[in-house]
Design a protein around this nucleic acid. Sequence first.
DNA 1: GGTGAAACTGTTCAATC
DNA 2: GATTGAACAGTTTCACC
Lengths: 146, 146
Amino acid sequence: MAAVDDIDRAIVGVLSRHGRATYAEVGAAVGLSAPAVKRRVDRLLDDGVVVGFAAVVDPGAMGWGIEALVHVYCQGRIAPSALRDAWEPIPEIVSASTVAGTADAVVRVRARDVQHLEDTLERIRGSAAIERTESTIVLSRLIERA
Amino acid sequence: MAAVDDIDRAIVGVLSRHGRATYAEVGAAVGLSAPAVKRRVDRLLDDGVVVGFAAVVDPGAMGWGIEALVHVYCQGRIAPSALRDAWEPIPEIVSASTVAGTADAVVRVRARDVQHLEDTLERIRGSAAIERTESTIVLSRLIERA
DNA sequence: GGTGAAACTGTTCAATC
DNA sequence: GATTGAACAGTTTCACC
């Protein structure tokens, strides 16, 4: 696991914005040849600095009209891995994290509509020893950066 | 702007998880030839269903060690656009949304360390007519999907 | 939406600084 | 130890069916 240097950061910067850029294009942007870029990207993938590549999708256009932030309060102590295993099968969950604060975890959920959101919340609550949830509906996305 | 059909959804599903998959690979997964996949992806890009492609980066490996969810309570009514303009220049903000609930907005912030986080929170508070903020520190990411 | 052909890119190698 | 440049396999991208 070599250190991440300035060129690596530049490569990551380009690929964060243009994930399908060719190695030659990235090389032109950072001052390296295509094979040199490929070697670095392979190393960044091996080291886990770059986890993967993804299409950035407009949730609204895909029919996922509603988004909510759900604060989850658990009964007693639950291992983070237990929560992950319980929530992994729920496709409506965009992200989930354990947190330090009054809540134990925060889950970001995307659903088609309020009914679908309610069903998903019920599924989240039923998936583990959860005391209660507190949902915050997202109105409009102001800023969204990779 | 044609409708998004099931094949489009399947293509988006593959590219969400494997953003650098070849058109032939996507085609094999959805039952189409490579040129047919390209035509659909080009249309999805034109229609704004797919906004772009991005490398998924591990923030910790890049030296962004700490993440927080900041609930923002405003003084009186503030236009969403005013919040966006005020926060756009703050690079530590990963995402920001107005919400329906007790808070007016939720901001996701990434910083190098607690000191950097504190500085960023101060900057967020000073950028608009904000009454108070309530921060939740992220401990560990359980699930992270595109 | 599929097919085939031309141009380009990804990938690997030996050689080099 | 890392980069370059050449070479082949594979992919993108056309036109056309």
